Amino acid sequence: MLDKPQIEKLQSLEDKFYELEARISDPAVMADMGEWQKLTRAHAKMAPVVIKFREFKKALASIEEAREMLKEKLDEEFRGMVEAEFEEAKGKIPALSEELRILLLPKDPNDDKNVIVEIRGGAGGDEAALFAGDLFRMYTRYAENQGWRTEVLDANVSDLGGFKEVVFVIEGDGAYSKLKYESGVHRVQRVPTTESSGRIHTSTVTVAVLPEAEDVDVEINPNDLRIDTYCASGAGGQHVNKTESAVRITHLPTGVVVQCQDEKSQLKNRDKAMRVLRAKLLELAQEEQHAEVAESRKSQVGTGDRSERIRTYNFPQGRVTDHRIGLTLHKLDFILNGDLDELISSLVTAGQSEQLKQVE
Results as ranks from 00 to 15, higher is better:
residue 133 G to Y: 03
residue 312 T to P: 07
residue 100 L to C: 01
residue 264 K to S: 10
residue 124 G to E: 10
residue 60 L to N: 12
residue 126 D to I: 03
residue 149 R to C: 00
residue 335 I to A: 08
residue 309 R to F: 00
residue 320 V to P: 06
residue 205 V to S: 03
residue 152 V to E: 11
residue 154 D to A: 11
residue 28 A to H: 09
residue 123 A to N: 09
residue 204 T to V: 06
residue 115 V to G: 00
residue 35 E to R: 13
residue 170 I to E: 02
residue 79 R to G: 07
residue 222 P to H: 03
residue 333 D to W: 00
residue 71 K to T: 11
residue 210 L to P: 03
residue 103 L to K: 09
residue 6 Q to A: 11
residue 239 H to R: 15
residue 115 V to S: 01
residue 115 V to Y: 01
residue 298 K to M: 12
residue 172 G to T: 05
residue 114 N to G: 06
residue 197 S to T: 13
residue 262 D to S: 07
residue 40 T to K: 11
residue 107 K to T: 04
residue 349 T to D: 14
residue 205 V to T: 09
residue 320 V to K: 08
residue 167 V to T: 14
residue 132 A to N: 02
residue 106 P to Q: 04
residue 296 S to G: 15
residue 163 F to P: 02
residue 295 E to N: 11
residue 317 Q to A: 14
residue 160 L to C: 05
residue 305 D to T: 06
residue 13 L to G: 02
residue 122 G to T: 03
residue 134 D to L: 02
residue 216 V to Y: 05
residue 334 F to R: 15
residue 271 D to G: 07
residue 352 Q to E: 15
residue 359 V to G: 00
residue 21 E to A: 10
residue 78 F to A: 03
residue 80 G to L: 12
residue 93 I to H: 07
residue 85 E to R: 15
residue 87 E to S: 12
residue 193 T to Q: 15
residue 167 V to W: 09
residue 25 S to I: 08
residue 19 E to S: 14
residue 201 H to K: 05
residue 26 D to Y: 09
residue 156 N to P: 06
residue 82 V to Q: 11
residue 157 V to E: 14
residue 112 D to Q: 12
residue 10 L to A: 08
residue 43 H to F: 13
residue 67 R to E: 15
residue 138 M to W: 04
residue 67 R to K: 15
residue 47 A to L: 12
residue 290 H to D: 13
residue 162 G to E: 08
residue 304 G to F: 07
residue 351 G to Q: 03
residue 221 N to S: 11
residue 17 F to E: 07
residue 28 A to W: 00
residue 20 L to H: 08
residue 284 L to C: 00
residue 230 Y to M: 07
residue 80 G to T: 14
residue 288 E to K: 14
residue 349 T to K: 15
residue 83 E to L: 13
residue 206 T to C: 01
residue 9 K to F: 06
residue 145 N to Q: 14
residue 32 D to L: 10
residue 260 C to Y: 09
residue 132 A to H: 01
residue 153 L to K: 02
residue 320 V to S: 10
residue 341 D to Y: 06
residue 43 H to S: 05
residue 171 E to C: 08
residue 222 P to I: 08
residue 317 Q to H: 14
residue 329 L to F: 03
residue 285 A to E: 15
residue 219 E to N: 09
residue 207 V to C: 04
residue 261 Q to I: 03
residue 348 V to E: 12
residue 333 D to P: 00
residue 224 D to W: 03
residue 226 R to M: 11
residue 71 K to F: 07
residue 105 L to G: 02
residue 347 L to W: 07
residue 164 K to P: 00
residue 287 E to W: 05
residue 246 A to Y: 06
residue 329 L to A: 03
residue 37 Q to L: 13
residue 299 S to Q: 11
residue 311 R to E: 01
